[in-house]
Computed example of a mutant assay.
Amino acid sequence: MKPNLSNELATKPHYPILDGLRGIAAIIVVTFHLAEPFSTSNLDKFVNHGYLAVDFFFLLSGFVMGYAYDDRWNKMTVGNFFKRRVIRLQPLVVLGMTMGAIGFYFTDSTLWPLIHDVPVWKMMLVMLVGYTILPVPLSLDIRGWQEMHPLNSVGWSLFFEYIANILYAVWIRKFSKTALSVLVGISAIALVHLAISNGDVSGGWTLNVEQVRIGLTRVMFPFFAGLLLSRVAKPTRIKNAFLWCSLLIAIVLYMPRIGGAEQVWLNGIYDSVCIVIVFPLIVYIGASGVIHSERENRVCKFLGDISYPLYMVHYPLVYFYVAWVSNNKGITIAEAWPYALLILIGGLVLAYAALKWYDEPVRKWLRKKFA
């Protein structure tokens, strides 16, 4: 009798603390985007290192990928792997792009003078391409920010995560620990060079040679360092891990810019240390952490559940907020914070609603149909 593949590949238990940390980082990403309109450059952003949350997500994804799939390849084909990844990721990609399309013509702003000259057919084409998470060329830049996903800016990181998934499934999963260590070492050198020469690792959202290089450099080290960590780490039992890791993530991502315009390389060193040393340490501590109470477990579960939905649905709301800030010249962050708080709370509510009323039911249906 043919084995039931869905039973053979039943979901493994999660690391609850890592789920919770993903949620903490996702919330900080929202605050990063809400503070961005008040900055003039990367040098004076209020949530200055919020962009590093993406690199933390990449490392977490690599770690979880190794934990979840490394020992399953004798029961699973590459096709089945990609089917599972698409079922996990694409429903919220579609929702986020649809939300961006619905709100597109209503985000009237001096920032985006192109909007009202964009024909509906062109916007719909961008939405349909966005559903695939493939990037759109600059000729379809309907917003004017040179983004590969003009309807939902954050889609760029999913595009690079898919690339890492593909590399893992078709090739790198077969690497020995030594070969994987060499790859991670080379990727670390490339990442440090990018960070120090540019002053940070921010970038990757435009479909041109330089930005694609940045995106690939940003995903290669953390994703495959996470994979290596899942293979070599031997978690212990660490008390209060969720609290300490949460505080460490907040400190790292809210840290002001280092070095200023004259010594950008100092900030590049900071980014490098965070990604190469601090983030793997946080993941190791989180994987080793012990949940002390049912309340802490519920908090971690809630944060983990809403982390990906929040990441994928918050930016269509941020477009409205950014347009409002742009249309009210001279407004300060002290005056705008109630509206920012409203967007943050609304994003959390929307993320939870999207999870329960859309993402979970759709994934359940897709698993039944295609598993």
Rank of each mutant, 00 (worst) to 15 (best):
R367E: 09
T332S: 14
L350F: 10
F320N: 06
V283K: 06
P280D: 11
K239I: 10
S272T: 05
N198I: 04
T40K: 09
H33E: 08
N240Q: 11
F279E: 08
R257Q: 12
F370T: 09
G289R: 01
E147N: 06
Y339L: 15
Y352H: 13
E210F: 13
Y15W: 03
S61W: 06
I115M: 01
D359Q: 13
I87V: 14
F63A: 05
F32Q: 07
S272D: 06
I163S: 02
G66E: 08
G259T: 10
V64L: 09
Y67T: 13
H314V: 09
P135C: 05
Q90V: 07
I115L: 08
E262L: 14
L317V: 12
H33I: 10
D141W: 09
P91D: 01
I333G: 00
I214G: 06
G204H: 06
I172W: 01
D55C: 04
L350R: 09
R84G: 15
L95A: 11
T132K: 01
T178A: 11
A35H: 02
M148D: 02
L128N: 06
M255G: 00
G304W: 02
Y15N: 14
A334T: 13
V93R: 11
A25H: 08
I115C: 01
K329P: 03
I102T: 02
I27G: 08
S139Q: 08
S272H: 07
L140E: 08
V192M: 09
G203W: 12
P137W: 11
W357F: 15
T98F: 13
A164F: 05
K369V: 00
V276R: 02
L183N: 10
I331R: 03
S246K: 07
T98H: 00
L60Q: 05
A261D: 13
L167M: 13
A164Q: 02
F56H: 12
Y270H: 01
W171Q: 00
G62N: 04
A25K: 12
M1A: 13
L34F: 01
A195W: 01
S197R: 13
A188W: 02
A35T: 14
L227A: 14
N240R: 10
L355R: 09
I142M: 03
T206I: 13
G286W: 03
I142R: 06
L227M: 11
F38Q: 02
T31V: 15
F223S: 04
D70C: 12
C300Q: 07
K239E: 14
W121P: 00
N327L: 01
P135G: 02
C300A: 12
A354W: 03
G62D: 05
L266S: 04
I28C: 03
V136Q: 10
D117Q: 14
R173Y: 02
P309L: 11
D19Y: 06
L59Q: 10
W205K: 01
C274V: 15
Q146N: 14
Y162E: 14
A241I: 11
A353C: 13
S109W: 08
V276H: 03
M220E: 12
P235T: 13
I291M: 09
G185C: 11
T332D: 10
V136N: 06
S41H: 09
P91G: 06
N74H: 11
A101S: 12
M123P: 06
I249S: 03
L167N: 04
W365Y: 10
G215E: 03
I238W: 05
H314L: 00
V322T: 15
